[in-house]
């Protein structure tokens, strides 16, 4: 929805034959403009820029939230990356998060596209199905966690019952280290409603004339999907891929709820730390182990990593997309 609109914009403004714009802002206008954007700027500075800069500063200190921070240079960063005694599970959390991203993002996009295609085909009751498929997104995270813990229950879980019908033996989903990430990714795919809506908008944006022309030329449904739908949806897919990867790298709430088990029990990231995602690890250091300085350093490592990954995606995938 957003991407096609963005892509059209430059084409409109750079239309030839248009008179060059005169500068319309006088001093007075400047002042009014500034006043109008002041709330937004204030919000940005107070709630985003200042905390980010403060976190950058604290990442070079040993701050524990209570006592005055001491400057420690880059040692938080070097210890995180190289000191296995101090941070025994840092690299594990990186591994878990990358695996999760690699599974969850394609699974989510695939599910979202399938749902959007189905919704686009049906004539009656589309609204009802759209609502039902979107429901997981607006459900409270704590409820989602509780429900999926029941679904994945090794004794009574419906997931095992369903697999049993096709002859697959019962699994202990959330307690087998190898199965934890796929199980979490599956929940993410179930919550793909937002991607589904965006794909649906993309599908509606494909002109009917193209489809009709293809039908007249004798293209079957598979060909139409491969030659028309997939290429026409590329900008949408690119947008969802970039935002999906960013979100997956920061996954936290669901893992926290799934593995906390309630009752004030501590969260250590599932069996053998197999569900210890990067942000969960960061959270534990910030608020459980009192190492806010190290946690700030972790958040900046993640920030740089996301920046690089996103830049790479723009560099190598966008050209293809446009």
């Amino acid at each position: 929805m957003a991407t096609p609109a963005l892509a059209e914009k430059p084409a409109v403004t750079s239309r030839p034959g248009r008179r060059p714009r005169r500068p319309v802002f006088g001093r007075r206008d400047h002042l009014i403009a500034l006043l109008l954007i002041a709330p937004a700027i204030a919000y940005f500075v107070v709630f985003l820029l200042y905390p980010a800069l403060a976190a950058l500063y604290y990442s070079f200190t040993d701050w524990d939230l209570r006592t005055a921070p001491n400057w420690v240079g880059v040692s938080n960063y070097t210890d995180l990356l190289f000191d296995q005694a101090k941070y025994p599970h840092f690299w594990q959390s990186v591994k878990v998060t990358l695996q999760y991203t690699l599974i969850a993002v394609p699974l989510t996009l695939g599910t979202a596209l399938c749902q959007a295609l189905l919704l686009n085909t049906i004539r009656r009751g589309a609204n009802v199905f759209r609502l039902l498929l979107f429901l997981p997104v607006v459900t409270a995270e704590a409820a989602v966690g509780a429900i999926w813990r029941w679904l994945y229950d090794p004794q009574y879980g419906l997931v095992n019952v369903a697999l049993g019908l096709v002859g697959i033996p019962r699994q202990n989903w959330l307690n087998t280290p190898e199965l934890v990430i796929p199980a979490l990714a599956f929940i993410a795919a179930w919550q793909c409603g937002i991607s589904m809506i965006i794909y649906l908008a993309g599908l509606k944006g494909i002109p009917a004339s193209i489809r009709e022309a293809a039908i007249i030329d004798g293209a079957g449904p598979v060909q139409r999907f491969r030659r028309i739908v997939v290429p026409m949806l590329r900008p949408t897919t690119f947008y969802l891929l970039v935002t999906g990867v960013i979100a997956a790298l920061q996954v936290f709430g669901l893992v926290y709820v799934i593995f906390s088990g309630g009752g004030g029990r501590s969260v250590t990231g599932g069996p053998e730390q197999s569900g210890l995602t990067y942000v969960l690890h960061l959270y534990l250091f910030a608020f459980r182990y009192d190492a806010m300085g190290a946690a700030c350093a972790m958040s900046f490592i993640l920030f740089v990593f996301i920046l690089v990954i996103t830049a790479l995606q723009f560099r190598f995938l966008r050209q293809e997309a446009s």
Partner: peptide
């Protein structure tokens, strides 16, 4: 540092023996 030792060192050790 006991909470951290409990969560990050002792708990995984228990788990590796139990598994």
């Amino acid at each position: 540092q006991w909470i951290q030792i409990n969560d990050e060192i002792i708990a995984p050790a228990l788990e590796s023996a139990l598994s």
